[in-house]
Write a protein that binds this DNA or RNA. Sequence first.
DNA 1: CACCCGTGGAA
DNA 2: TTTCCAAGGGT
Length: 292
Amino acid sequence: MSRESPIAPVLNRWFAENARDLPWRDPDYGAWGILVSEFMLQQTPVVRVIPAITAWLDRWPTPADLARVPPAEAVRAWDRLGYPRRALWLHQAAVEIVERHGGVVPSDVDDLLALQGVGDYTARAVSAFAYGHRHPVVDTNTRRVIARAVAGQAEPAPPAKRDLADMDELLPTDDAEARVFNAAIMELGAVVCTARAPRCDDCPLRESCAWRAAGYPAYDGPRKAVQKKFEGSDRQVRGLIMRELRAAHGPVTITEITSLWADDAQRERALCGLIADGLAVGDRESGFTLPS
DNA sequence: CACCCGTGGAA
DNA sequence: TTTCCAAGGGT
């Protein structure tokens, strides 16, 4: 037997009055725009995505528009949103949408999951937000809100398959309400129930929050893996090379690349990695470019 | 499952 | 200055 979500009514009401006016929440934004927004929002903050997605959709209003240009154009337009593989994957996803779905972003979760760069989160987000289908949409925000408001813990456990079922239990049975709830719980995690300094006094769930009821106990679970330092990392070197490739009109010579980073082994590792990822193409004789 | 992958802003 | 973290996904 199932029962209605205890927190959906109050959360959905709060969302109706407090939702940020984000571009992709326009009812006419379209599935392609929403798919692009989800790619860009993978680890890139909202404030940096807003100007980028506007320019992107202005240039490539449909998957077919993106699919017919070289991947280099996508990587260049991605600019400094970070994780440039996402630009490559988004371009590839557009190609697959044209090849397999007649240029229309699919609505089925399994079809979406089959697209390059689309995982559990993005597939369900697109199906739910673009097409109104009832799926649990689980991201870092929803996991944190559920950990606190429902489980009474300061931080969620490491991501697990179980998260989908946990979210599904809270999801209203009605499709439209479920879609709003997915957005609302994510929004709450983004602006109120934040990772640092949550604004519990302003939280619509404060009366029922299990973490508050327990007296805000500190997190005592397994230590989260700490992100490795960026300064001096391979990622920094890759970033420097990518910046050069994006800015260049012609091939970038190996001499120019060598000048970017002194450590030979690390520089070589970064360049080989970019080539393996398909972000760089070429050789030492003719130089390197973005993939065409 | 642990680790890797960019970039920038805020505490 | 350093650390944290941001609508994840692939291997």
